[in-house]
């Protein structure tokens, strides 16, 4: 019987600095991955944690990691050619097939951009799939802006709104990203989907703002982040009501997500 808890060694191909606190680790990998899936990354002696895929390409997968806990600090000690242990991918994905020929609104907060980045790049390369893509991203301040070199590319392909919570800077509006949702022309859309990824409070506020603008709850998709020890439905940490985020999520339609309570 297959041991699904056993991680496998993978080589680190590159380490790319995003901000002072966030680095992207490019790891050798050549299996298919769906949009918004995650892996369990582990560092011997430090432990294991679920990390979203922030990019993928021929022979590699990217993880953008914020130095925030013990595991992520451990990962920051790794460099090119070191070994990273991982297992996955886990979780469901955004219903990308349903996005075809419809408008798409992507609302991301902070590091929440990481899991939607592969999706955004997919639509940059294939502008014919969706009607208009509205990409709204909020960061705390200029120092916290990740993928700074990709933001202009997204701005030329999509209708973008970039904002900073606490600062004014060229190219960015000031204030929370949720304050700008009212600018999305929901009334003009014949059909659309909304993907929201970010901290829980930001996702709740963004979903509320969308509903206020007349968006239908079933058009909204949110992505959850939970503590996990196994990612395969056993350890219990990510359970909410009768739902396991690792097995049933992390992407949930808002009609389901709004009923879950911690």
């Amino acid at each position: 019987m297959e041991n699904i808890m056993l991680p496998k060694p993978h080589k680190i191909l590159a380490v790319l600095k995003e901000t002072n606190a966030e680095y992207t680790f490019r790891v050798a990998y050549n299996q298919p991955i769906d949009y918004n899936q995650f892996f369990q990354l582990s560092i011997p002696k430090v432990g294991e944690a679920p990390i979203s895929v922030s990019g993928k390409g021929q022979g590699y997968v990217d993880f953008t990691i914020r130095k925030i806990g013990r595991l992520t600090e451990g990962i920051f000690g790794l460099q090119k050619d070191d070994t990273l242990f991982m297992r996955g991918p886990y979780g469901n994905s955004f219903p990308v097939a349903d996005f075809e020929n419809k408008n798409l609104v992507v609302i991301a907060g902070g590091t929440g951009i990481a899991p939607v980045r592969p999706l955004l790049n997919h639509f940059v390369q294939h502008p014919e799939i969706c009607q208009n893509v509205y990409f709204m991203a909020g960061f705390k301040n200029l120092d916290a802006v990740i993928y700074a070199d990709e933001l202009p590319k997204f701005a030329s392909a999509f209708q973008t709104t970039y904002c900073l919570d606490t600062e004014a800077a060229p190219g960015f509006r000031q204030g929370f990203v949720t304050e700008y949702i009212q600018n999305v022309p929901f009334a003009d859309f014949d059909d659309y989907n909304i993907a929201i990824v970010g901290p829980p409070i930001m996702m709740a506020a963004a979903a509320k703002a969308c509903l206020q603008e007349g968006a239908a709850p079933e058009k909204i998709w949110v992505s959850f982040e939970r503590r996990m020890s196994c990612a395969i439905g056993k350890c219990g940490h990510c359970k909410i009501n009768d739902t396991y985020v690792c097995l049933d999520g992390p992407v949930f339609n808002y009609t389901k997500a709004r009923n879950l309570f911690d």
Partner: peptide
């Protein structure tokens, strides 16, 4: 139920 039927079976439990 948890170890064998919630997601793929857990070989350590089994």
């Amino acid at each position: 139920t948890i170890f064998m039927h919630n997601g793929a079976p857990d070989s350590y439990y089994q």
